[in-house]
């Protein structure tokens, strides 16, 4: 029973990683940059939801919507102000800028909300499910997280495959110049990508803090790094890869914590990443293009 309990917890934590990893992987796929500020957008999303419920007394679900709106706007602003002027700059300059944005967000949060941890109350209001005569408890947060993850995955896949903007994203991710010659507004496409990634980050922030309710300005950084790991693990640029990588990472982390050592859990996670990259440098589902020239 403990095994199943751990497995479910792992899948649930992994689902949060997966949702965050989607943001990393989409932005990487389309703008070819690593947005290391992505983890901090999660934290902002959680704070916005916290304020909406605690100070304004709003319905938790409404608070998620507000957090998504705020983070979407934030994502677009960050991209427009910090990254867009660097579109032709070397990748390293963009990377350093992203780290700068990350610190900027963390310190802004520190200034606005202070360093004292906020106690985030779960947005899920129904009870946990008790199975096998109380031996196996599935928390309501786990259920909501996993369902949210599945819904997001399906919606995003359909969006990328079928919608006009989704097709534009795929074209831009392959060849910006050629996409432009097709009449695709590349800058707009990149903005939309950031908007989607940031809205997902808000959802992830709320789900993460519902399960692990301590909210501080650095809440987003570790999950952000792990989700980045998950994206690389699954094959950066690949949406199913981000999903698979996220969930596997969550399971490995929880199992490591339960069966090996809780102190070493994070080390195990990153060790697995190293092994995967040694064996398959493109990640589990990384694209290998069969090109015939």
């Amino acid at each position: 029973m403990t095994f199943i309990f751990n497995l479910i917890n792992g899948i649930s934590l992994g689902s949060v990683y997966a949702i965050i990893a989607l943001g990393y992987t989409m932005v990487y796929g389309i703008a070819k940059m690593l947005n290391f500020a992505h983890g901090d957008v999660i934290m902002i999303g959680a704070y916005v939801s916290y304020c909406a419920t605690t100070y304004m007394g709003l319905n938790p679900l409404l608070s998620v919507v507000i957090a998504m709106v705020v983070c979407t706007a934030l994502g677009i602003i960050i991209e427009g102000l910090a990254y867009k002027p660097l579109r032709k700059a070397p990748a390293l300059a963009v990377l350093i800028t992203a780290i700068g944005v990350s610190y900027f967000l963390q310190n802004s949060a520190l200034l606005i909300w202070g360093s004292a941890p906020k106690n985030f109350s779960s947005i899920v209001s129904f009870d946990s499910i008790s199975l096998a005569g109380g031996k196996l408890i599935i928390t309501s947060e786990s259920i909501v997280t996993v369902i949210a993850c599945i819904v997001i995955m399906i919606a995003l896949t359909l969006f990328i495959k079928k919608s006009k903007m989704g097709k534009a994203m795929r074209a831009v991710s392959e060849d910006k110049g050629a996409a432009e010659l097709m009449g695709i507004n590349v800058n707009l496409t990149i903005s939309v990508t950031f908007a989607i990634g940031s809205a997902l980050a808000a959802v992830a922030g709320v789900l993460l803090c519902s399960a692990y309710p301590i909210l501080i300005p650095t809440t987003g950084s570790m999950p952000g790094i792990k989700a980045f790991t998950a994206a690389v693990f699954g094959g950066i640029g690949s949406i199913p890869g981000a999903m698979l990588g996220g969930i596997l990472l969550g399971i490995i982390e929880i199992f490591g914590r339960a069966y090996i050592s809780s102190e070493l859990a994070d080390a195990i996670v990153f060790a697995v990443l190293i092994v995967v990259l040694l064996v398959k440098p493109t990640g589990l589902l990384g694209k290998k293009i069969n090109e015939k020239v």
Binding site: K167, E174, A178, E180, L181, G183, I184, I289, E291
Partner: peptide, 30 residues
């Protein structure tokens, strides 16, 4: 650049630059 296509100007770039991960149909749709 992206506004010129609608005006009736098409540019087939050097090296073809097809979308190599998309199908032939998808390329044409683009």
């Amino acid at each position: 650049a992206h506004k010129l296509v609608a005006k009736g100007l098409a540019h087939v770039p050097e090296g073809r630059r097809c979308f190599l991960q998309m199908t032939v149909m998808e390329n044409l749709e683009m």
